[in-house]
């Protein structure tokens, strides 16, 4: 479904991606790991066309999205549901209005139907009690849950994209979010999670892509990740071992 073909990307003089190649099928559960500023979030934004690469092709269903206009990209984006870092809830709207945003935008549902749909989505993510809270009244974990509920309201996505979904959360909340991510993928819908927390990546993914120096240093399953002797990955794994011990 997703294919990166020799993708280069830079912010000014800072080269983020240098000839990245990979393919991801829509039912896969993938974690993209790497250090801060390594291009993890950039990859998610490239997938949904929020950024354009300097060179290379990005194929979604064999269709090169790098040459598409903003209007054409709208169709591509409907295939994905993305949860940004920190949730990116609209801070002028309460939880209900945030979740109902796309329902109001794209459907002709009545107010009662919207209300019922919002209740259902909030129940799925376990924050039904916070329906009328404003975003600044939510904890970090609740923020992410509401963001996930909002992303579920978009359409029926073929793949979920999560940007640092567990970063900054306490271990209990992080595990709850991971469980929720797994729950949403039970019906075979794949996901890509960008994270630097190896423990969370192992909870939700079967395939691991590790970014280093603008390229892919590792691409494999959990056994490949854990046995890797690449210095940066060893540091990540050591942190995991330390946490476990």
């Amino acid at each position: 479904m997703i294919a990166f073909d020799d993708v280069y990307f830079s912010y000014g003089d800072h080269h983020i991606l240098k000839g990245v190649n990979f393919q991801i099928q829509e039912s896969e559960r993938v974690a993209i790991l790497g250090g801060s500023g390594g291009g993890k979030t950039t990859i998610l934004k490239l997938i949904v066309g929020l950024l354009k690469p300097d060179s290379g092709r990005i194929l979604i269903d064999n269709d090169d999205i790098t040459i598409k206009s903003e209007d054409e990209l709208m169709e591509v984006r409907k295939k994905f549901s993305i949860v940004f870092q920190d949730g990116a809830l609209f801070d002028s709207l309460n939880v209900k209005e945030n979740v109902a945003f796309c329902l109001r935008e794209y459907t002709k549902m009545s107010e009662q139907e919207i209300d019922e749909e919002v209740d259902e989505l909030l129940r799925i993510v376990g924050v039904e009690h916070a329906k009328y809270y404003m975003p600044d009244e939510l904890s970090g974990g609740m923020h992410r849950r509401v963001a996930i509920a909002r992303s579920l309201a978009v359409t029926k996505p073929r793949m979920f994209l999560y940007d640092e979904a567990t970063t900054g959360l306490d271990p209990v909340n992080a595990e709850n979010i991971c469980n929720l991510i797994n729950e949403l993928s039970k019906n075979g819908t794949g996901h890509i999670i960008v994270t630097h927390r190896v423990i969370d990546a192992l909870r939700v993914a079967d395939r691991f892509i590790f970014l280093k120096d603008g390229g892919i240093a590792l691409d494999g399953d959990s056994s490949v990740l854990i046995r890797s002797n690449i210095s940066d990955i060893v540091v990540f794994i050591n942190e995991l071992k330390y946490n476990l011990s």
Partner: peptide
């Protein structure tokens, strides 16, 4: 602050 908080990106992803 909407740009920094990815709210504008969210709008674009939602097709707005």
């Amino acid at each position: 602050s909407m740009v920094i908080g990815h709210q504008v990106d969210s709008l674009r992803v939602f097709g707005v």
